[in-house]
Amino acid sequence: MTVVTANEPVVAPRRYGNLRRLFRDKLAITAAVLLILLVLAALLAPWLAPNDPYLTNTRLRMLPPVWETRGRWEFLMGTDGLGRCMLSRLLYGLRATLMMGVVATAVGGSIGLLLGLFAAFYRRLDGLIMHLSDILLSFPAILLGLSFAAVVGPGMTAVVISLAVATIPTVVRVTRASALVVMGQDFIEAGRSIGLNDRTLLVRYLALNCISSVFVYMTLRFGQVILLGSALSFLGLGAQPPVAELGTMASAGRNELFLAPHIAVMPSLVIVVLVLCANLLGDALRDMLDPRLRHT
């Protein structure tokens, strides 16, 4: 029989082969590289943007990208309906969209993680937390967005709050399911028997053993959040003018769809690439961390 000491909680052995497996997955590596490039482009937007993204010049409106006949080198990706540089706005828009996705996923994910752990650890709270979670699940994110926009006014704050709130219940469920499995392990019982307090048990024994599955879920959720956030912005609930945000840009571009399709197509393409990369990476991480999928 293995002897378990209080200072050495039983955790799954580190799998050094995981990273190697990830590197062998060409699709995942491509997605990761693209995602890193997009994040870098967003972070460096003020230095990379060739023009002021807010400077309007209606005389130069709807210029096509440089590879088309009317294109101009100073506006590589053309201009939008008000003559603003599309490339600069895409870079700034990417920044806003990524920030929205990261903040909403992090805030919603953290709250969901805590609630999920509490539900599994304190059984008397389980019913209450899960019922609350079920209630939240019954509200579509779009409806939540509309409600918050009505209260705090349309803008990034309303979108981030509604996306964070919409993220909570699903993370609660994933965390709870994962935590319940861990709660059934012997080392939790052993920890209790040697008199460890709840905080240590929750953080060192429970949370650390659930975090990988929750992280994988949040990676996948990040893609959904970007898509939902862009949809809310498309409906006019998100970033307010002149702030560039990919969903808002796609929405503004649809009015010029006949004359300058690049205005709607480009931000939409960036959203597609962003979401696809996040999903591919999430899938790869899940495959890597789930022993049942490791050899498939």
Partner: peptide
């Protein structure tokens, strides 16, 4: 909301900057 006022407001916003 809607294309008309979105464009108008953003144009005026650009002029006022």
């Amino acid at each position: 909301t809607g294309s008309t006022w979105q464009k108008l407001m953003e144009t005026v916003q650009g002029d006022l900057r």
